[in-house]
Write a protein that binds this DNA or RNA. Structure first.
Lengths: 205, 205
DNA sequence: ACCTGAACACCGTTCAAGT
DNA sequence: ACCTGAACACCGTTCAAGT
């Protein structure tokens, strides 16, 4: 019976194939013109097959966003392990955030645009998003304990830092800026100077 | 009453009626589920009538965004006239930005989400967006001349300030934050403290 | 000049039917 | 259990036709 089931699968893992196909299409054509039927076609199945793995289109979009948040969390975590100094951790976290966004502009737009219906989103998406923010929170708290950043509500400080890099990321990926910032050098320079300015306002004196 | 409406549309009022209907629908159902056919229905015309006034759906969306940018520019301009001190101008500009965003979350999302195709957007939209940014630029330059903000590239300082408030606005209107910030008091408090922290990093010393 | 309904090629989603 | 095609109610856009 198990063999028969296995054979009858068109794919070994259709769920992941669909996510992969969706990510590719979002990169190609942007997040707002993603169609479930096209995703199915790209994955080589009928247009109703995705409903075996996702309750609706929103669930598939949420899965893409979730991958994005998990990747961000992993990168931020690596950064903390790589840089022992709290100042470097703070600055490099901003660099990582902006780098990831600029390298994946369409995914970034999808993660944060109103396209996702958060009311019906799976709990795992909210968890993944919170995990990413918590990495930043940890960096701020550590910087306060090491007396780099002044005492105060770490929630608010972390939100300030997140807002700044997030705003930059959204303006760049949303193509709101006149000058285009795309090269890794531009990204690093901008994230570093802007991050340093904010950190200056957060310093213990 | 129906006759009167019908007559007014024949007198060239339809364009504005469509924009007004579209804004109402975006507020009701969010920017990503706006349909041209529903806009036409709400305005009381056939679903092809909008094509007499807009080349396509994107043009209508751009018009909504343009109204938003113009309103922001006007508010920022008023703020500068109302507050003579550069510090107040800087802080209040942030308050105004966040206030406007929180009061119109769906429009804000539409203005900055990838939903707008900037390649085919009319030049007037880019002009309106640039005008809004220039208000902020003016505030920064003035603060530098009055020796509040340190010397340096005003483009970069203005971009830092814009990014921070924009990030905050996008996180709030995109419902990314656990705690909801909606009341005018919450908005003012958050914009003030966050703005003051950034300004601290920009001060002349 | 302005607006219309029919038509076309798409959508997301549902469902009875096939394997 | 997994996948299918047909069907339904939408969509943006085009076009010949009406006023």
């Amino acid at each position: 019976v198990a063999d028969k089931q296995k054979l009858s699968y068109h794919h070994g893992d259709l769920r992941n194939s669909l996510i992969q196909a969706a990510v590719a299409l979002v990169r190609e054509k942007g997040p707002h013109s993603l169609s479930l039927r096209e995703v199915a076609k790209k994955a080589g199945v009928s247009h109703t097959a995705p409903y075996r793995h996702f309750p609706d289109k929103n669930a598939l979009i949420c899965s893409i966003a979730e991958v994005g948040f998990r990747l961000l969390t992993a990168r931020l975590n690596l950064t903390q392990n790589h840089y022992p100094e709290p100042r470097d951790q703070f600055i490099e976290a901003g660099v990582v955030y902006l780098e990831l966004a600029v390298k994946n502009p369409e995914i970034t737009q999808l993660m944060f645009s109103g396209q996702i219906d958060r009311a019906t989103a799976p709990e795992s998406l909210h968890t993944a998003a919170r995990d990413a923010f918590n990495q930043l929170h940890k960096i701020v708290v550590n910087a306060q304990q090491r007396n780099l950043i002044r005492p105060g509500d770490p929630d608010e400080f972390a939100l300030s830092a997140w807002s700044m890099m997030h705003g930059l990321a959204m303006l760049i990926t949303g193509e709101q800026l006149d000058k285009s910032i795309r090269s890794p050098e531009d990204v690093r320079r901008l994230a570093t100077t802007v991050g340093a300015t904010l950190l200056d306002g957060l310093l213990a004196r």
